[in-house]
């Protein structure tokens, strides 16, 4: 079956420990991930939700795989948009790999359907998000545009 996939890679001068924390800890995510925070106990099989500051749920799913400081796989369904929600569950994989003084972070977003609106829409956001995460970890400051939830969304 045809699928839709996007892949994003960035090299961040940090440690896997710090990056692993930055991907999940609300103290980090609220600063670079459009002011959102995760809700999960991060155990495989547990529910996972990404919360918008106004209390709405942006995305939800299940923790599929956890290898601390190496790999995190989440099933991922849009909750804030009906058309994207109707596509069902996609899958987001975070892979961390130390390379010299840096960590290579690969984010793969995929779904088992062609021309996915969910994957294609989020493909506009991931580069901003990852650039902001890199900036936060390397300089202490995220990009201002990813520090708030986008107006009207």
């Amino acid at each position: 079956m045809a699928d839709t996939r996007s892949v994003f890679v960035t090299y961040i001068r940090t440690t896997p420990t710090r990056l692993w924390q930055a991907l999940r800890d609300p103290e980090f995510t609220r600063r670079y991930w459009f002011a959102t925070r995760h809700e999960s106990d991060w155990t495989p099989g547990s529910p996972w939700r990404l919360m918008i500051p106004d209390g709405r749920v942006a995305h939800s799913g299940e923790v599929l795989e956890v290898v601390p400081e190496r790999r995190l796989v989440l099933s991922w369904r849009a909750e804030f948009n009906a058309a994207m929600h109707a596509e069902g569950h996609s899958r987001v994989t975070f892979e961390l790999e130390p390379v010299g003084e840096s960590v290579r972070l690969t984010v793969t977003h995929e779904i088992d359907r062609p021309d996915s609106k969910l994957v294609k829409t989020l493909a506009h956001g991931w580069p901003h998000l990852l650039s902001s995460l890199k900036s936060l970890l390397e300089t202490g400051e995220p990009l201002t545009e990813t520090s708030r939830w986008p107006k009207g969304m």
Partner: peptide, 28 residues
């Protein structure tokens, strides 16, 4: 240059555009 990311699907090597470095240049 990290502008392309590669995913192996069976024996097929698939190429994906990685826009993150261009975004980083734009931002910084």
């Amino acid at each position: 240059a990290n502008l392309i990311a590669v995913v192996w699907k069976g024996r097929e090597k698939l190429h994906y555009l990685n826009p993150v470095p261009i975004q980083e240049i734009a931002d910084r």
